[in-house]
């Protein structure tokens, strides 16, 4: 259980996290979603006490992280894959961390096996690829067999097989009753892993709901209409207070009326329809709708696409 109350972090005049309050519950995977610069990483750093909050509090299992008796057993954290001395081998890095809590060597070997690092464990971390660094970071997070896992962008740099592995691992650990808190800027990733999503934009929580509710929060479902009489029908729809966008000739995208209402309107006016299909908003659309005003760095001033946000 992670509880944040009015959590705020300012760096000079810039407010990275702005009065954030949320609860991350055990037993489910909670996704932490937001565009780059939204304050996800800062929030995670605040949780584990690396940064000091400007205001507000955050606790893990009811206590501040620094006051925990066995931090590595309570919380496993992957903040970024680069939190490792590049001149040390992966094995020695893990042994050094394990030593602080008296974690035995066999557990170190176990997490090395679990993350598939056997073949590179004795190599210096400086030569690691992004994916191997990420696996080492996850191994370090798992070292204390912690009740709470905090993983910042865990799938960054992983190959598809690694991505699926992290996904399953997160679900498995949550299934054991642990608290699992993952961040990502990729909605599609979250959609496949998380049960509950907290969306952050410009340092504020803009949504905190189960995945299904996030989808429902999208701008609304639309209906695609194809008709040779597009101009006249658009006017008719406008009179019924529907929002109509005309993306290509003879094709209208209608929101505000459902398919049945549009069909009845067409029949009444004698308009021939070639297509009438409801379009459900995807999680992607929901995310974009939620964050489009919150994106810190737009790609060249264009509307934020997921790719634009991701890169």
């Amino acid at each position: 259980m992670i509880e944040a109350t009015g959590l705020t972090k300012r760096y000079g005049s810039k407010t990275a996290v702005d009065g954030v309050s949320f609860t991350v519950r055990p037993g489910i995977v909670t996704g932490f979603l937001g565009p780059n610069g939204a304050g996800k990483s800062t929030t995670m750093r605040l949780i584990v006490g690396l940064d000091r909050p400007s205001a507000g509090t955050v606790t893990v299992n009811g206590r501040s992280y620094a006051s925990l008796h066995a931090p590595l057993h309570e919380v496993g954290v992957l903040l970024d894959a680069k939190a490792v001395h590049t001149g040390r081998s992966a094995l020695n890095h893990l042994l050094a961390l394990a030593a602080t809590h008296g974690i035995p060597r066999r557990r170190v070997d176990e997490v090395i096996g679990l993350t598939g690092l056997e073949s590179v464990a004795s190599k210096r971390v400086g030569g690691f690829s992004l994916g191997m660094g990420q696996r080492l970071g996850i191994a370090a997070a798992l070292l204390g067999d912690p009740a709470t896992l905090i993983l910042d962008e865990p799938v960054n740099g992983l190959d598809p097989e690694g991505v699926i592995w992290v996904r399953n691992l997160a679900k498995f650990l949550a299934g054991e009753g642990r608290t699992v808190f993952l961040s990502s800027h990729l909605m599609s990733e979250m959609a496949q892993t998380a049960d509950h999503i907290i969306v952050l934009g410009r340092g504020r929580v803009i949504a905190d709901s189960p995945v299904a509710d996030i989808i429902a929060m999208a701008k609304g479902n639309s209906v695609t209409v194809r008709t040779p009489d597009a101009a006249r029908f658009a006017t008719l729809l406008g009179e019924r207070r529907a929002t109509v966008t005309n993306s290509e000739p003879n094709k209208l995208s209608v929101t505000g009326l459902d398919a049945a209402q549009i069909g009845e309107l067409a029949a009444g006016a004698g308009v021939v329809l070639h297509e009438l299909s409801p379009v459900a908003a995807s999680l992607e659309d929901a995310y974009l709708a939620l964050t489009q005003d919150e994106v810190e760095y737009h790609a060249g001033g264009a509307a934020p696409t997921l790719e634009g946000v991701a890169r």
């Binding site: 055990p26 008796h69 030593a99 602080t100 809590h101 204390g144 067999d145 709470t148 054991e176 642990r178």
Partner: peptide, 26 residues
């Protein structure tokens, strides 16, 4: 919170000690 353990591992929860930190730094 109820922390469950993986079937393969029962951690020796000795916690953070100064001796452990000395060992780690060594």
């Amino acid at each position: 919170m109820t922390a469950t353990t993986t079937p393969t591992f029962v951690p020796e929860r000795r916690g953070l000690t100064f001796g452990g930190i000395l060992n780690s730094e060594f």
